[in-house]
């Protein structure tokens, strides 16, 4: 009976690891998969295989996958909100902004790793930080995107939006010089 429970969980995690579009989540799913499979080996009477799986599959394979993921560049997106008291609940718990799913589709298409940060700091303070790619500010239904001119991924994102012209929300793209 316990074996059957763990077989079901193993199948679920294998399917999730194949079907997720984000690579970091796939690494976590694979780590959980090999940790569970080590226990299943114990149940089926193969303790030596369990030992090897715990050492190799759950530790070394995860680190090798992470080293392979360094080829992916990280695309940092800051999201600012005007009403700062409830921003965490709205965006993280319930459902995402429609603009974020569009940006994530763009990142997956160009083989970038999207990293979304819900910030509560001021806009000028974030602009002084190194390493941001796009800042999204939201005023009711109106989005403003800030991007650097040197950053060609951000410029490609701007071009794509100007080409498609989605009617739901209006966009203003700012260019800045260092």
């Amino acid at each position: 009976m316990i074996e059957k429970i763990f077989f079901v969980i193993l199948i679920v995690f294998a399917i999730m690891a194949v079907h997720t579009p984000k690579m970091r989540q796939a690494v976590v799913y694979l780590a959980v998969f090999s940790a569970l499979s080590a226990f299943v080996y114990v149940l089926m009477g193969a303790p030596d295989a369990a030992l090897a799986e715990a050492v190799i599959g759950s530790t070394i394979a995860t680190i090798i996958y992470l080293a392979a993921l360094q080829k992916y560049k990280v695309f940092m997106i800051y999201l600012l909100d005007e009403k700062q008291d409830t921003h965490h609940r709205e965006h993280v718990s319930r459902r995402k902004d429609p603009i974020l799913s569009t940006i994530e589709e763009f990142c997956i298409k160009r083989e970038l790793e999207p990293l979304i940060i819900y910030a509560v700091d001021e806009l000028d303070f974030i602009k002084k930080k190194p390493g941001w790619d796009i800042i999204v500010t939201k005023v009711k239904n109106h989005y403003v995107l800030h991007g650097r001119e040197q950053n060609y991924h951000a410029m490609a994102l701007k071009d794509e939006w100007e080409k498609e012209k989605k009617a739901k929300v209006s966009f203003i793209v700012e260019k800045e010089h260092e």
């Binding site: 700062q84 008291d85 965490h88 940060i117 819900y118 509560v120």
Partner: peptide, 10 residues
């Protein structure tokens, strides 16, 4: 440090 913040008044 990865930038995950919650509200102070919550």
């Amino acid at each position: 440090h990865g930038g995950y913040r919650i509200d102070k008044e919550d």
